[in-house]
Simulated scan of single mutants.
Amino acid sequence: MKKFLFLFITVACVTAANAQDSTVTTTKKSKKDWSKVKLGNRANDHFMIQIGHNGWSQKPDSLNTRGLSRSFNMYFMFDFPFKSDPRFSIGIGAGLGTDNVYFKNTDIDITGRNSNKLTFKNVADTNHFKKYKLMTTYLEAPVELRFAVNPENTNRSWKFAVGGKIGTLMSATTKGKTLQNKNGNTINAFTQKEKAKRFFDGTRLSATGRISYGVFGIYGAYQINSFIKDGMGPDVRPYQIGLVISGL
C-alpha cells in the first residue's frame, strides 16, 4: 500500500510542478486577468465515476485476501469557482461508494453467531466456498479543492483535486458461491448471503486526491478512521487507487 501511495504522490507532485511552471510562464507572457474569464460553456465535473483496486492497510497475515478486490464509486457534484481566480474551485457532492473484498478459504462471522467479535476463520481444512467476498455500500458526501490549468475548457486541461469524503454505512454483506469440501470437490452449487452492520463503524472518513487530463484520470483514497469498530476485530484501513471519469 505504501508503494502505491508513494507512486501516486510522486506522480501528483511531478505533474503539478510541470503544470505550475507552464501556468507561470503563460501568466508572465499574457498577464491574463483571471477575474474576467468566461466560464459559461465549460464542463464543471458535475458527474464522477471511479473504478479502482480496494486494499486493506494494516492487514494481519491471518486475513487471506485473494484476487483483485475492487471499488466502484459514483457521485453527482456541484462546482463553485473562486471569483478572484477561477482556476480554483470547491466541489461538493453526494453519491454511493461500494467495495468488494475477496477472500480465499475464509468464513467471516458477520452476524456474530459464534462470537461477539468479527472473526475471519481459515476453513481450508473443512467445507468452504469456492468464491467468497465481503461487500460494503456507503452513502457518501465528497468535498474537493480543485485546480484547473485551463478553467475555460476543462475537457482539454490538466485538473487536480484534494479533499475528503464522509460516508454512512448502508449495508455490509458476505457472499459465498459454490460450497466445496477440503479437497475442492463441489458439495452444493448454491449461493449464501449474510447481512449485518453491527461490527463495522457506521461512519467512514477518507482523504482523497485525483489527477486528470480532460475527462480521464487517476484517483486515490485512504480511510482515516477504523473500518471495524474498536475492539471488534483487526484495525484495517481500506484504501483505493484507480481510474476516474469526470465531466459534464
Results as ranks from 00 to 15, higher is better:
residue 248 L to C: 06
residue 13 C to T: 13
residue 145 L to Q: 10
residue 120 F to K: 01
residue 71 S to Q: 04
residue 152 E to A: 13
residue 66 R to K: 15
residue 96 L to T: 04
residue 95 G to F: 08
residue 157 S to L: 11
residue 126 T to F: 09
residue 20 Q to S: 13
residue 241 I to W: 02
residue 204 R to C: 06
residue 194 E to D: 13
residue 216 F to L: 08
residue 34 W to F: 14
residue 146 R to S: 04
residue 169 L to W: 04
residue 102 Y to L: 14
residue 47 F to P: 00
residue 1 M to A: 13
residue 174 T to F: 04
residue 13 C to K: 06
residue 40 G to W: 11
residue 8 F to G: 04
residue 172 A to Q: 06
residue 127 N to S: 14
residue 238 P to R: 00
residue 245 I to M: 13
residue 20 Q to A: 14
residue 1 M to G: 09
residue 143 V to Q: 01
residue 171 S to W: 00
residue 162 V to N: 04
residue 109 D to Y: 06
residue 53 H to C: 06
residue 215 V to F: 12
residue 46 H to P: 00
residue 118 L to T: 03
residue 65 T to M: 07
residue 104 K to M: 09
residue 43 A to M: 12
residue 123 V to P: 01
residue 102 Y to F: 14
residue 78 F to I: 08
residue 238 P to W: 03
residue 113 R to I: 07
residue 61 D to L: 12
residue 156 R to Y: 09
residue 66 R to T: 15
residue 28 K to Y: 13
residue 22 S to D: 13
residue 10 T to S: 15
residue 152 E to L: 07
residue 172 A to E: 02
residue 182 K to S: 13
residue 214 G to T: 00
residue 246 S to F: 02
residue 31 K to C: 11
residue 242 G to H: 02
residue 139 L to V: 03
residue 70 R to S: 09
residue 9 I to L: 14
residue 223 Q to M: 07
residue 83 K to A: 15
residue 214 G to E: 06
residue 18 N to D: 03
residue 53 H to S: 12
residue 211 I to N: 01
residue 224 I to H: 07
residue 58 Q to M: 10
residue 164 G to D: 08
residue 2 K to Y: 00
residue 241 I to R: 01
residue 92 I to C: 13
residue 230 D to T: 11
residue 188 N to H: 08
residue 73 N to F: 02
residue 238 P to A: 00
residue 137 T to D: 05
residue 185 N to H: 08
residue 73 N to Q: 10
residue 155 N to K: 05
residue 50 Q to I: 02
residue 30 S to H: 11
residue 162 V to G: 12
residue 193 K to M: 10
residue 132 Y to D: 03
residue 172 A to N: 03
residue 42 R to E: 12
residue 97 G to I: 01
residue 115 S to V: 09
residue 228 I to W: 02
residue 16 A to G: 14
residue 11 V to G: 04
residue 221 A to H: 09
residue 170 M to F: 08
residue 87 R to N: 15
residue 140 E to S: 15
residue 179 L to M: 01
residue 210 R to K: 11
residue 52 G to C: 02
residue 32 K to D: 12
residue 229 K to S: 02
residue 175 K to Q: 10
residue 104 K to N: 15
residue 178 T to V: 10
residue 53 H to R: 11
residue 24 V to G: 01
residue 242 G to D: 00
residue 208 T to S: 08
residue 133 K to G: 05
residue 216 F to H: 03
residue 228 I to T: 02
residue 148 A to Q: 06
residue 27 T to I: 00
residue 90 I to F: 10
residue 50 Q to E: 04
residue 172 A to F: 00
residue 150 N to W: 01
residue 21 D to C: 08
residue 68 L to F: 10
residue 122 N to R: 09
residue 31 K to Q: 15
residue 130 K to V: 05
residue 205 L to T: 06
residue 248 L to G: 12
residue 186 T to A: 09
residue 115 S to Y: 11
residue 225 N to S: 00
residue 59 K to Q: 05
residue 104 K to I: 07
residue 107 D to P: 00
residue 210 R to G: 05
residue 194 E to I: 03
residue 236 V to G: 05
residue 26 T to W: 09
residue 77 M to V: 03
residue 72 F to Q: 07
residue 168 T to F: 09
residue 184 G to L: 07
residue 56 W to G: 02
